[in-house]
Protein backbone atom coordinates (compact mmCIF):
# COMPACT_ATOMS: atom_id res chain seq x y z
CA UNK A 1 0.00 0.00 0.00
CA UNK A 2 2.81 2.31 0.98
CA UNK A 3 4.65 1.48 -2.21
CA UNK A 4 1.49 2.20 -4.17
CA UNK A 5 1.10 5.53 -2.47
CA UNK A 6 4.75 6.34 -3.10
CA UNK A 7 4.40 5.32 -6.70
CA UNK A 8 1.31 7.48 -7.11
CA UNK A 9 3.13 10.38 -5.52
CA UNK A 10 6.10 9.90 -7.79
CA UNK A 11 3.83 9.73 -10.82
CA UNK A 12 2.12 12.95 -9.87
CA UNK A 13 5.49 14.60 -9.34
CA UNK A 14 6.60 13.38 -12.74
CA UNK A 15 3.55 14.82 -14.33
CA UNK A 16 3.79 18.05 -12.41
CA UNK A 17 7.27 19.29 -13.34
CA UNK A 18 6.61 20.02 -17.02
CA UNK A 19 3.33 21.60 -16.02
CA UNK A 20 5.21 23.84 -13.65
CA UNK A 21 7.45 24.96 -16.50
CA UNK A 22 4.42 25.94 -18.52
CA UNK A 23 2.89 27.56 -15.45
CA UNK A 24 6.09 29.55 -15.06
CA UNK A 25 5.90 30.74 -18.64
CA UNK A 26 2.27 31.62 -18.19
CA UNK A 27 3.17 33.71 -15.16
CA UNK A 28 5.96 35.31 -17.09
CA UNK A 29 3.57 36.28 -19.86
CA UNK A 30 1.37 37.85 -17.20
CA UNK A 31 4.41 39.85 -16.05
CA UNK A 32 4.30 38.06 -12.71
CA UNK A 33 8.03 37.61 -12.35
CA UNK A 34 8.04 36.38 -8.80
CA UNK A 35 5.34 33.83 -9.57
CA UNK A 36 7.24 32.66 -12.64
CA UNK A 37 10.37 32.09 -10.59
CA UNK A 38 8.41 30.12 -8.03
CA UNK A 39 6.96 27.89 -10.70
CA UNK A 40 10.35 27.36 -12.32
CA UNK A 41 11.87 26.50 -8.97
CA UNK A 42 9.08 24.02 -8.33
CA UNK A 43 9.65 22.45 -11.73
CA UNK A 44 13.34 22.14 -11.08
CA UNK A 45 12.71 20.49 -7.75
CA UNK A 46 10.23 18.07 -9.29
CA UNK A 47 10.63 15.10 -11.58
CA UNK A 48 9.90 14.19 -15.12
CA UNK A 49 11.37 17.08 -17.05
CA UNK A 50 12.48 16.38 -20.56
CA UNK A 51 15.59 18.09 -21.91
CA UNK A 52 13.34 20.32 -23.96
CA UNK A 53 11.29 21.39 -20.96
CA UNK A 54 14.44 21.98 -18.93
CA UNK A 55 15.77 24.19 -21.71
CA UNK A 56 12.51 26.03 -21.71
CA UNK A 57 12.72 26.42 -17.96
CA UNK A 58 16.23 27.82 -18.12
CA UNK A 59 15.33 30.24 -20.88
CA UNK A 60 12.31 31.45 -18.95
CA UNK A 61 14.36 31.89 -15.82
CA UNK A 62 16.99 33.85 -17.74
CA UNK A 63 14.33 36.19 -19.06
CA UNK A 64 12.83 36.73 -15.63
CA UNK A 65 16.23 37.41 -14.14
CA UNK A 66 16.96 39.82 -16.93
CA UNK A 67 13.68 41.54 -16.18
CA UNK A 68 14.62 41.85 -12.55
CA UNK A 69 18.01 43.29 -13.40
CA UNK A 70 19.76 40.26 -11.92
CA UNK A 71 22.54 40.06 -14.43
CA UNK A 72 24.55 37.39 -12.65
CA UNK A 73 21.56 35.13 -12.19
CA UNK A 74 20.58 35.61 -15.82
CA UNK A 75 24.05 34.70 -17.00
CA UNK A 76 24.05 31.66 -14.73
CA UNK A 77 20.79 30.43 -16.23
CA UNK A 78 22.10 31.00 -19.74
CA UNK A 79 25.32 29.19 -18.98
CA UNK A 80 23.34 26.22 -17.80
CA UNK A 81 21.22 26.43 -20.90
CA UNK A 82 24.31 26.52 -23.08
CA UNK A 83 25.66 23.57 -21.18
CA UNK A 84 22.44 21.68 -21.77
CA UNK A 85 21.97 22.58 -25.41
CA UNK A 86 24.49 24.85 -27.08
CA UNK A 87 22.35 24.94 -30.21
CA UNK A 88 19.29 26.11 -28.38
CA UNK A 89 17.43 28.84 -30.26
CA UNK A 90 16.10 31.54 -27.99
CA UNK A 91 12.55 32.70 -28.55
CA UNK A 92 11.54 36.07 -29.89
CA UNK A 93 10.96 37.39 -26.39
CA UNK A 94 14.67 37.42 -25.72
CA UNK A 95 16.10 40.91 -26.16
CA UNK A 96 19.52 41.38 -27.76
CA UNK A 97 21.20 41.58 -24.35
CA UNK A 98 20.01 38.10 -23.50
CA UNK A 99 20.97 36.76 -26.91
CA UNK A 100 24.45 38.23 -26.58
CA UNK A 101 24.82 36.81 -23.09
CA UNK A 102 23.78 33.41 -24.42
CA UNK A 103 26.42 33.56 -27.14
CA UNK A 104 29.02 34.47 -24.54
CA UNK A 105 27.81 31.66 -22.30
CA UNK A 106 28.07 29.23 -25.18
CA UNK A 107 31.67 30.27 -25.76
CA UNK A 108 32.52 29.99 -22.07
CA UNK A 109 30.89 26.67 -21.45
CA UNK A 110 32.51 25.01 -24.42
CA UNK A 111 30.02 22.28 -25.09
CA UNK A 112 27.30 20.10 -23.73
CA UNK A 113 27.36 17.66 -20.88
CA UNK A 114 28.52 14.23 -21.98
CA UNK A 115 28.95 10.87 -20.37
CA UNK A 116 31.68 8.33 -20.88
CA UNK A 117 31.43 4.75 -19.76
CA UNK A 118 34.38 2.69 -18.64
CA UNK A 119 34.23 -1.03 -18.09
CA UNK A 120 36.86 -2.76 -15.98
CA UNK A 121 37.15 -6.50 -16.14
CA UNK A 122 37.37 -8.02 -12.67
CA UNK A 123 38.45 -11.53 -11.68
CA UNK A 124 34.88 -12.40 -10.84
CA UNK A 125 32.89 -10.10 -13.01
CA UNK A 126 33.24 -6.53 -14.19
CA UNK A 127 33.02 -2.99 -12.95
CA UNK A 128 31.20 -0.29 -14.89
CA UNK A 129 31.83 3.37 -14.24
CA UNK A 130 30.18 6.39 -15.79
CA UNK A 131 32.10 9.62 -15.99
CA UNK A 132 30.44 12.94 -16.65
CA UNK A 133 32.41 15.38 -18.74
CA UNK A 134 31.77 18.90 -19.87
CA UNK A 135 29.63 19.73 -16.87
CA UNK A 136 30.94 23.28 -16.63
CA UNK A 137 27.93 24.63 -14.77
CA UNK A 138 27.10 21.92 -12.27
CA UNK A 139 24.06 20.96 -14.25
CA UNK A 140 24.53 17.24 -13.73
CA UNK A 141 23.02 16.10 -10.49
CA UNK A 142 23.57 12.40 -10.84
CA UNK A 143 24.11 9.43 -13.08
CA UNK A 144 21.89 6.43 -13.57
CA UNK A 145 23.65 3.31 -14.75
CA UNK A 146 21.93 0.20 -16.00
CA UNK A 147 23.95 -2.77 -17.10
CA UNK A 148 23.62 -6.47 -17.73
CA UNK A 149 26.09 -9.24 -18.35
CA UNK A 150 26.10 -11.57 -21.33
CA UNK A 151 22.60 -10.66 -22.41
CA UNK A 152 20.97 -11.60 -19.12
CA UNK A 153 17.33 -10.84 -18.70
CA UNK A 154 17.70 -8.64 -15.63
CA UNK A 155 19.30 -5.23 -15.62
CA UNK A 156 21.32 -4.08 -12.65
CA UNK A 157 21.02 -0.47 -11.67
CA UNK A 158 23.29 1.91 -9.83
CA UNK A 159 24.82 5.32 -9.66
CA UNK A 160 28.17 6.30 -11.07
CA UNK A 161 29.69 2.90 -10.52
CA UNK A 162 28.24 -0.57 -10.79
CA UNK A 163 29.79 -3.88 -9.87
CA UNK A 164 28.65 -6.80 -11.98
CA UNK A 165 29.63 -10.12 -10.37
CA UNK A 166 29.82 -13.23 -12.46
CA UNK A 167 30.56 -16.44 -10.60
CA UNK A 168 29.92 -19.04 -13.24
CA UNK A 169 32.61 -18.08 -15.68
CA UNK A 170 34.29 -15.11 -17.34
CA UNK A 171 32.23 -12.23 -18.62
CA UNK A 172 31.98 -12.13 -22.38
CA UNK A 173 30.21 -8.86 -22.97
CA UNK A 174 28.37 -6.16 -21.05
CA UNK A 175 25.53 -3.94 -22.17
CA UNK A 176 25.24 -0.56 -20.56
CA UNK A 177 22.82 2.33 -20.52
CA UNK A 178 24.20 5.42 -18.76
CA UNK A 179 22.13 8.53 -18.28
CA UNK A 180 23.20 11.82 -16.72
CA UNK A 181 20.35 13.36 -14.80
CA UNK A 182 19.89 17.05 -14.33
CA UNK A 183 17.40 19.34 -12.63
CA UNK A 184 13.87 18.07 -12.57
CA UNK A 185 15.17 14.61 -13.43
CA UNK A 186 15.88 15.72 -16.98
CA UNK A 187 18.28 13.45 -18.85
CA UNK A 188 21.22 15.56 -19.96
CA UNK A 189 23.31 12.98 -21.81
CA UNK A 190 23.04 9.30 -22.49
CA UNK A 191 25.18 6.42 -23.57
CA UNK A 192 23.04 3.68 -25.11
CA UNK A 193 19.33 3.10 -24.79
CA UNK A 194 17.21 0.26 -23.47
CA UNK A 195 16.60 -0.87 -27.01
CA UNK A 196 20.15 -0.39 -28.22
CA UNK A 197 22.48 -0.49 -25.22
CA UNK A 198 26.18 0.29 -25.54
CA UNK A 199 27.98 -3.05 -25.85
CA UNK A 200 31.42 -3.79 -24.42
CA UNK A 201 33.20 -6.99 -25.45
CA UNK A 202 35.42 -8.11 -22.60
CA UNK A 203 36.87 -11.23 -24.12
CA UNK A 204 39.67 -9.33 -25.84
CA UNK A 205 40.43 -6.67 -23.24
CA UNK A 206 40.35 -8.67 -20.02
CA UNK A 207 43.03 -7.57 -17.58
CA UNK A 208 44.30 -4.75 -19.79
CA UNK A 209 42.73 -1.78 -18.04
CA UNK A 210 39.42 -0.15 -18.68
CA UNK A 211 37.50 -0.43 -21.89
CA UNK A 212 36.23 2.98 -22.63
CA UNK A 213 32.97 3.36 -24.41
CA UNK A 214 33.19 4.17 -28.05
CA UNK A 215 33.59 7.91 -27.64
CA UNK A 216 31.56 10.23 -25.49
CA UNK A 217 27.89 10.18 -25.90
CA UNK A 218 26.05 12.57 -28.07
CA UNK A 219 23.99 15.08 -26.21
CA UNK A 220 20.34 14.41 -26.22
CA UNK A 221 18.36 16.09 -28.91
CA UNK A 222 16.57 18.81 -27.06
CA UNK A 223 14.05 19.15 -29.80
CA UNK A 224 13.63 22.89 -29.87
CA UNK A 225 12.93 24.24 -33.31
CA UNK A 226 15.49 26.76 -34.52
CA UNK A 227 12.75 29.07 -35.66
CA UNK A 228 14.83 32.20 -35.50
CA UNK A 229 17.61 30.69 -37.55
CA UNK A 230 15.18 29.58 -40.21
CA UNK A 231 13.68 33.00 -40.29
CA UNK A 232 17.07 34.64 -40.61
CA UNK A 233 18.11 32.38 -43.48
CA UNK A 234 14.76 32.83 -45.16
CA UNK A 235 14.96 36.57 -44.73
CA UNK A 236 18.46 36.70 -46.18
CA UNK A 237 17.46 34.63 -49.20
CA UNK A 238 14.38 36.78 -49.72
CA UNK A 239 16.42 39.97 -49.52
CA UNK A 240 18.97 38.63 -51.99
CA UNK A 241 16.19 37.69 -54.40
CA UNK A 242 14.66 41.13 -54.05
CA UNK A 243 17.99 42.81 -54.78
CA UNK A 244 18.43 40.67 -57.88
CA UNK A 245 14.96 41.50 -59.09
CA UNK A 246 15.47 45.21 -58.56
CA UNK A 247 18.80 45.12 -60.37
CA UNK A 248 17.22 43.21 -63.24
CA UNK A 249 14.34 45.66 -63.47
CA UNK A 250 16.70 48.63 -63.55
CA UNK A 251 18.80 47.02 -66.25
CA UNK A 252 15.78 46.29 -68.42
CA UNK A 253 14.17 49.66 -67.96
CA UNK A 254 17.25 51.67 -69.02
CA UNK A 255 17.19 52.45 -72.74
CA UNK A 256 20.22 53.08 -74.94
CA UNK A 257 19.49 56.79 -75.25
CA UNK A 258 19.85 57.30 -71.60
CA UNK A 259 23.39 56.09 -71.64
CA UNK A 260 24.47 58.48 -74.39
CA UNK A 261 26.38 61.54 -73.34
CA UNK A 262 24.56 64.81 -73.63
CA UNK A 263 25.73 67.50 -76.01
CA UNK A 264 28.23 70.01 -74.68
CA UNK A 265 26.82 73.29 -73.50
CA UNK A 266 28.72 76.41 -74.44
CA UNK A 267 28.76 79.07 -71.83
CA UNK A 268 29.74 82.50 -72.93
CA UNK A 269 31.44 84.67 -70.41
CA UNK A 270 30.96 88.35 -70.99
CA UNK A 271 32.84 91.00 -69.15
Amino acid sequence: MLALAFSAGATSARAQAPDDVEAGWARYREADFAGALEAFDAAEAGEGLSPASLARLLEGRALVRFAQGEQAAMEAALRRLANLDPQHALGDDAPPEVARAFLAARRDVGGPVRVEVEVWPEPAGARVRARVTGDATGLALGVRLRARVDGEEAWREGGEELLLPRVDGPVRFIEVVATVLGPGGAPLARQGTEERPARFDLAAGAGAGPIVGAGPSDPLAVGMLPARRRRVIGGALGAAAAVLLVALAIGLSRGETRTQPTAPVVVELRP
Binding site: G69, D92, D93, P96
Partner: peptide
Protein backbone atom coordinates in the same frame (compact mmCIF):
# COMPACT_ATOMS: atom_id res chain seq x y z
CA UNK B 1 6.35 42.13 -20.73
CA UNK B 2 5.86 42.17 -24.48
CA UNK B 3 5.04 38.59 -25.53
CA UNK B 4 6.13 37.86 -29.05
CA UNK B 5 9.18 40.07 -28.95
CA UNK B 6 11.12 42.64 -27.05
CA UNK B 7 10.69 46.36 -26.83
CA UNK B 8 12.60 49.39 -25.64
CA UNK B 9 10.91 51.01 -22.67
CA UNK B 10 10.90 54.79 -22.34
CA UNK B 11 9.49 57.05 -19.71
CA UNK B 12 9.57 60.76 -20.34
CA UNK B 13 12.17 60.29 -23.00
CA UNK B 14 14.45 58.24 -20.80
CA UNK B 15 15.38 54.79 -21.95
CA UNK B 16 14.70 52.46 -19.07
CA UNK B 17 15.80 49.24 -20.69
CA UNK B 18 14.29 46.50 -22.74
CA UNK B 19 11.51 44.12 -22.02
CA UNK B 20 11.03 42.01 -20.12
CA UNK B 21 11.82 44.57 -17.48
CA UNK B 22 10.83 45.58 -14.00
Amino acid sequence: VTPGGWADVYHRGRHLGRTPRQ
